[in-house]
Amino acid sequence: MESFNGIRVLLVDDEPHILQFLELGLRNEGFDVKTAFDGESALAAVHSYQPHVIILDVMMPGTDGLTVCRRLKEEEADIAIIMLTAKDEIDDRVKGLLIGADDYMAKPFSFEELLARIQARLRNQFPSLLGEIRLGPFVIDDRKKEIAFRGEALGLSPTEYKLLKLLVTKHGTVLSKTNILNIIWNYDFGGEDNIVEVYIRSLREKLGDKEHRIIRTLRGAGYRVDLP
C-alpha cells in the first residue's frame, strides 16, 4: 500500500457534498487535505498551502476552474492539476488540457478512479514523495535509495541511483547528455561529457543490458528508457 503522508491535496468545488465526500476519502488514505469553494480562495490557498495536487472543478461562480488553471500554469506553479468537468462538456476538457491541466475527470466518477489518477500524477511529477515506485520491471525505493530490476536489487552507487531513477521516471523521454549533466551533477558542463557515458555503461552492466534494449542510445540526441 502506498504511503501518502505529507502529500498535500487542494480540493476546489462549489458543491459542499462533493468536497465533503472527497475530503473524507482522501484523508482516510493519509493525504493532507484542504478545501476551497471558489477560484479566488483556491488561488489564495495555493500560495499559502502549496499543494502537490489540486482537484479543480471547471464550473464555479466568479473565477472559474479554467482561469485558475491558466493562472497557475502561467506562474509555473509546481502542481499537478486534475480538472473536474461535466459529463458532456468535451470543450471544457479540451480547453483545460490546452492551458496546461495534467488530467481531467468527468462527473460523476468513482473515488477509486480519482485515487488512481492522483497516484499516476504523483509518480509522474513527484516520484520522490512516494516511498516505493513501480514502473515496469523496476521498483524504486526512494527511502532506501535502492532500485530493483526484475526483483533483484542492483547495488547502485548514489550517483548511479540518481541517474537510473531519472531515466526510469522519465521513461519514453529522450534525455541529452547536457540535460543529464545539469540534473545529476548540478552544473553547466562545458568540457568532455564522457562521464555520462561511463555511468551509462556501468548501469547497463548491472542491468545485463548488453544489447542496449533497456537504456537505448539515440545517436546525436541522448538516452531513453522504454518500459513495457
Rank of each mutant, 00 (worst) to 15 (best):
V58K: 08
T173G: 02
I184C: 03
D14G: 09
G62Y: 06
F149N: 01
A86P: 11
S157R: 13
K107C: 10
H52P: 01
F4W: 13
M60D: 06
R204E: 12
I195S: 11
A42D: 00
V53F: 10
I81W: 09
E160Q: 15
N194F: 13
E89Q: 13
G96P: 03
A101V: 12
G62F: 00
P127T: 08
E76L: 11
E29K: 06
L84R: 02
L43I: 12
M83F: 09
L227Q: 08
N194I: 15
E29H: 00
N182C: 11
L181M: 15
E205I: 12
E211S: 14
D103H: 10
V53R: 01
L207E: 03
D91K: 14
R213G: 12
E160A: 15
D78V: 04
R121F: 07
N182M: 14
Y104S: 03
K95E: 13
A106E: 06
V58E: 03
G39Y: 08
N182I: 11
R134I: 00
G208C: 04
D13G: 03
D102M: 03
G39M: 06
Q20M: 12
Y199P: 06
I184Q: 00
E23G: 09
S202C: 00
V68E: 05
G96T: 03
D38R: 09
G65Q: 00
N28T: 05
I184V: 15
F149R: 06
E76M: 10
T35Y: 00
T35Q: 05
R219K: 15
H212D: 14
R70P: 01
I180D: 00
D102T: 08
R134Y: 05
L130S: 10
S3L: 03
L98M: 15
D57Y: 06
Q125A: 09
A116C: 02
R216T: 07
K87P: 05
G30D: 02
M83S: 00
V198K: 13
D32K: 08
L218H: 11
D32L: 13
S48D: 14
L97A: 04
A148Y: 08
I55N: 05
R117T: 04
E132D: 00
H212K: 15
K165T: 08
L207C: 02
D64L: 02
L166R: 07
E160S: 15
E74Y: 07
W185T: 09
R219L: 13
E152V: 14
M60T: 09
R213F: 03
E2N: 09
V196C: 09
K107N: 08
T173S: 10
G220N: 11
L122F: 00
Q50D: 09
S41T: 15
L19S: 07
I147A: 04
G30R: 02
R123C: 10
S157L: 12
L11H: 02
R27Q: 14
V174W: 04
R8A: 02
E40D: 12
G136Q: 11
M59N: 12
L207D: 01
G222C: 02
E211C: 04
V94W: 09
I184E: 04
H17K: 14
